[in-house]
Nucleic acid binder design. Structure first.
Lengths: 233, 233
DNA sequence: TTAAAAACTTGATGTACATCAAGGAAAATA
DNA sequence: TATTTTCCTTGATGTACATCAAGTTTTTAA
């Protein structure tokens, strides 16, 4: 489970750089991690800055070291959807890395963010020498594929209400004991992610609150009062 | 580009088995392919038979050798969606293979189908010795991820009309010269895949035909008459 | 600290699409 | 070939949700 990093005070930065903290590398020996660290270029992005654009062909693996990154997709006719949020330890850039293809989405920093970049050739070399890294990447890619397909199925078959309720409950799972979830994004972005409009999010949350299922504490904080009922929607 | 195999007369079967025909293995030397072939168990499934179920934990990679396979996802409340069709050369099973996780979807044969199966331990061993195979798998997984995210974005932002038009045009790309596409599935299944109802598919195709964009030749064959207009929808 | 810009809420209205129903066509099975 | 089953079509009706609009609050930036 990736360590969540919602505010600027939080940091995974340490003397060793980011290799030792990310799941795809931190299972290696110290010597191997030191070797990889030398190949890494760390870049800092300010809030709102673009990390890569759709239709560009940047050959690198991007690993989030500190901060938070959003991935958006643009349709043929200019609409956009938020498809993923990346927290420290997560990576992106795989499509243009393994496919001689251009990026099909764009990545931007949601707060001040540090990113570790490894060039395509360097990574290929690592993958050839340490097959374990490939296994980690395949594990991560297949998990993401599964989540993405689940999202498709929900968009295809469920009402907004249901998608929202499931989203709330699943957000809780990462933070234990307390029943307060931090959306970590605006409701406008949540609407985009769930394939609906901000107005509908607003109204549905109001309905949930009226029914006693949740309590809206602040714009991005929600307390879940009745998880069982939420799951029944 | 995978060789498409729509009817029973078509076959990729040959004396060497399926290793030499599938993209994730056919770049290896003959000796290596022969070695892999020995690890493979070939299974035959009749039309309609289940290959694996959701919630089972079968540790194998499934590579389609001959025939056609569908992957469906079931939601918490019992609705289902067709999410992928597999043709010869395609593989599945990766989630439970790389993650100690159970299948989150189920696979069934759409026609009589031959499948090559490799056990988890055997594959892990191969991946350790031939890192090239991992690269092919990562390439394939990231392409599928990209397609799945694109599908999400379309479901989230586009009208049924648009999704259908795009589907028709993109179906053509695999078959050159002629402008006739073979759906390869019932309209009921197409509706499920596109996140709509069979009735709506029926009506939209009728509208496309009325507008002169397409001609419905038979239930699963459609001639595209005006691709540019279809892309403008 | 104040001004400006986003984000959020709530109401009113419209529409794309689901669902139900029932007859007809095609496909599967015996 | 006959018979059953599944699939497809077309109409009628209902609804979940988008969109527009305008006021309000929160956040950001100067």
């Amino acid at each position: 489970m990736a360590h969540k990093c919602f505010d600027l005070g939080c940091s995974m930065h340490n003397g060793k750089g980011c290799v030792s903290t990310v799941p795809i590398f931190n299972h290696l020996t110290q010597d191997q991690m030191d070797e990889i660290q030398k190949l890494i270029v760390t870049k800092t992005f300010k809030k709102g800055e673009t990390i890569y654009d759709a239709n560009t062909k940047s050959d690198a693996l991007y690993v989030i070291s500190r901060g938070r990154v959003r991935i958006d997709r643009i349709t043929e006719d200019g609409k956009s959807q938020l498809i993923r949020l990346l927290n420290p330890g997560d990576f992106t850039g795989e499509l243009s890395l393994f496919n001689d293809s251009i990026h099909d989405s764009f990545a931007s920093a949601m707060m001040n963010t540090n990113i570790c970049m490894i060039k395509r050739e360097d990574l290929q070399d690592l993958l050839n020498r340490y097959p374990q890294i490939s296994l980690k990447i395949m594990s991560e890619l297949s998990k993401r594929l599964s989540k993405s397909e689940e999202q498709s199925t929900r968009l295809a078959t469920q009402k907004v209400e249901t998608r929202l309720a499931l989203y709330l409950v699943e957000s809780l799972e990462s933070e234990q004991s307390t029943k307060i979830i931090h959306l970590g994004m605006s409701k406008k972005d949540l609407a985009s992610y769930l394939g609906t409009s901000p107005e509908t999010i607003s109204r549905k949350l109001f309905e949930f609150e009226e029914a006693g299922y949740i309590k809206q504490i602040s714009n991005q904080e929600i307390e879940l009062l009745n998880i069982d009922e939420l799951l029944m929607i």
